[in-house]
């Protein structure tokens, strides 16, 4: 009887939960519904109505405008994520298992780099990158790799530090050297951390705007910059902007839907709570 009452009380929670879910999904609904309307049907006054049929006008037009920048983003994000995760793994391994003198000072110094406002390094950064001729997509890859070192190192360090030291000691007795231990013992069991870091770097590089707007021009704009310009222009109508937003969000959304668990772990690592 009492248990039943408690259960009923709990079921009452579905009302606020569903209400909140609607709040979170509202922007998604507008993006999707608008995207699937035909040009004839699009009107700000009926933006909350469901589409009367399924049309692709908006997506086709948005894709025609955004395709080059979607490719720019892809070309930048894949190498940035791969290089970042390999560097992070190596750094994390060394910091966790081969403590050298000064490691306790170096690690917090690296961590701080994760939180700095990039406005405080932007002027030297632009001067430097221009001076060495590293602009466009290659420059962006380097920016994401270098400013990604703190988070990737942290994620791997925490993972490797959680592994028992005996694992290494046994290998050492068998005569394995540092690189041998890394390659044959740690690397094969690092897959989950690689997924976390790959997703994290993929998402943050794909979503970045500040470095993108500063290092690229209209020939190689990543999609965030292209979408923002599209939204700022008076000629491109709101419905195409909505469809474009969905196209720009789709890659990271798919990653989130497929690998949400790992995404969450990266998120918690980013607050030093991994």
């Amino acid at each position: 009887m009492l248990k039943n009452l408690k259960l009923q009380k709990k079921h009452g929670l579905y009302i606020p939960l569903i209400g909140m879910a609607i709040f979170y999904l509202l922007p998604m609904y507008v993006m999707l519904a608008t995207g699937f309307k035909s040009f004839a049907e699009v009107d700000l006054k009926t933006m909350w109505n469901l589409p009367q049929g399924i049309a692709f006008d908006n997506y086709i037009e948005a894709y025609a405008k955004l395709a080059p920048s979607l490719w720019s983003s892809a070309k930048m994000v894949v190498p940035a994520a791969l290089i970042s995760s390999m560097l992070g793994s190596l750094n994390g391994f060394i910091l966790a298992k081969w403590k050298f003198k000064g490691a306790d000072i170096i690690f917090p110094l690296i961590l701080f780099g994760m939180f700095i406002p990039y406005q405080s390094i932007l002027i030297p950064f632009v001067q430097f990158m221009n001076a060495v001729g590293l602009t466009g997509i290659p420059g962006l890859i380097i920016a994401h790799v270098i400013y990604g070192i703190p988070i990737t190192t942290l994620t791997f360090r925490n993972y490797y530090a959680s592994l028992p030291q005996e694992l290494l000691e046994a290998a050492k007795i068998d005569g394995a050297d540092m690189l041998g231990i890394y390659r044959h013992i740690l690397l094969p069991i690092s897959m989950p951390s690689f997924v976390v870091v790959l997703i994290w770097q993929f998402t943050s590089a794909w979503n970045d705007f500040l470095f993108a707007v500063i290092l690229t021009s209209n020939t190689d704009w990543p999609v965030t910059v292209a979408l923002n310009n599209m939204a700022g222009s008076q000629i491109i109508s709101w419905n195409v902007q909505m469809a474009g937003s969905l196209l720009a969000a789709l890659p990271t959304l798919l990653v989130y839907i497929l690998l949400g668990r790992y995404f969450l772990r990266g998120l918690l690592a980013g607050s030093l709570k991994g």
């Binding site: 999904l25 969000a249 959304l253």
Partner: peptide
């Protein structure tokens, strides 16, 4: 559902909310 906006860029969020 509560967490998915984290996967989206501020730019996309901004463009959609601008119309909302």
């Amino acid at each position: 559902i509560f967490l998915f906006p984290m996967a989206i860029s501020y730019i996309v969020t901004g463009v959609v909310w601008r119309w909302l």
